[in-house]
C-alpha cells in the first residue's frame, strides 16, 4: 500500500487559516490502513481545527467527508454537489488523491493533509516500512524476492557495499542491509550460486528518470 504520515497540525492550520468553509476529505484506502488519513483521522483533525479556530475567534466551518478512494473519478464525483459549499479542501489522501482532487475540481484550492512516504507494508501496528519504489521493471526474480532498489540506501544492484556490518546498513544501525537479506534468502533457497551472476546496468527509463509514467491497457479499455 501507499504509506503516508500525518502532517503537523500547525502546517495545516497555516494552509487553511485564510478560508472560512473547509472540507476535510479522507480516503478509505491505504491511508486508512496506515492511520494517517482515514475517517478517524479526518474526525480528529476536523475537531482539533474547529477548536483551534473557535479558540482564536475565527468563524470557520469545518466539515468531514471520507470517500472510498480519491484515486478514481467515480468516488470524487460523490462530492460534486457539495463542493461549492467549501472554499478549500484538505485532502488526507496520498499525493495521488490530492492531485486527482485538484484535477477534478479545477478552481478549488486543495491542500495536502499528509506526507506521502512510500510503498510499503505494516510490519506491526505503528511500524510501516518500505518495500517498493515502483521502478517499472521488477527485478525481484533475480534478487531472491528482496528489492535492493527500495531497500538498499544506495540501490546497489551488485551488493553489498563495504558498509554492511553485522547485517545492518552503514546509514543506520536500525536498518537491515538489503544485501544481507538477499544473501540470507539465497542461502535459504539453496541458490547461492546466483549471487555471482552480475547484474547488468539497469534501464531506469521506466523509473522516474523517464518522466511521468503511464500504463495503457487497451484490452481492458471500453
Amino acid at each position: 500500500m501507499i504509506v503516508a504520515d500525518k502532517k503537523p497540525i500547525e502546517e495545516i492550520i497555516q494552509q487553511v487559516e485564510s478560508y472560512h468553509n473547509v472540507l476535510i476529505l479522507g480516503c478509505n484506502e491505504c491511508v486508512t490502513v496506515c492511520e494517517a488519513g482515514g475517517k478517524k483521522e479526518v474526525g480528529i483533525l476536523a475537531s482539533a481545527l474547529r477548536m483551534y479556530f473557535l479558540n482564536n475567534g475565527k468563524d470557520m466551518r469545518i466539515d468531514e467527508v471520507t470517500l472510498e478512494r480519491q484515486c478514481d473519478h467515480e468516488y470524487l464525483e460523490e462530492i460534486r454537489d457539495r463542493i461549492d459549499r467549501y472554499d478549500a479542501v484538505v485532502s488526507l489522501a496520498c499525493g495521488v488523491g490530492v492531485q486527482f482532487m485538484a484535477e477534478t475540481y479545477l478552481s478549488k484550492p486543495i491542500f495536502p493533509g499528509v506526507n506521502t512516504c512510500f510503498l510499503g507494508v505494516t510490519e506491526k501496528r505503528g511500524l510501516w516500512t518500505e518495500r517498493c519504489q515502483a521502478c517499472g521493471q521488477c527485478i525481484l526474480a533475480n534478487t531472491a524476492g528482496i528489492c535492493p532498489v527500495s531497500r538498499c540506501a544506495k540501490r546497489i544492484l551488485n551488493g553489498p557495499c563495504g558498509g554492511s556490518s553485522k547485517g545492518k546498513c552503514e546509514v543506520n544501525k536500525d536498518l537491515d542491509c538489503a544485501w544481507q537479506l538477499i544473501v540470507d534468502r539465497l542461502k535459504a533457497l539453496g541458490r547461492m550460486d546466483d549471487y555471482e551472476k552480475l547484474f547488468s546496468i539497469k534501464d531506469w527509463s521506466t523509473d522516474r528518470a523517464g518522466g511521468p509514467r503511464k500504463v495503457i491497457r487497451e484490452d481492458v479499455q471500453i
Partner: peptide, 26 residues
C-alpha cells in the same frame, strides 16, 4: 560506490547511484 551522503556535509542532498561500482568497472 561512495559513502552515503548522510555522512557528509550535504545530508539532505539526493544521491544518484544510476550504476553501481561493479557496473562502473564494466
Amino acid at each position: 560506490s561512495g559513502d552515503h551522503q548522510s555522512f557528509g556535509d550535504c545530508p539532505t542532498g539526493q544521491n544518484v547511484h544510476d550504476i553501481d561500482s561493479m557496473q562502473l568497472i564494466q
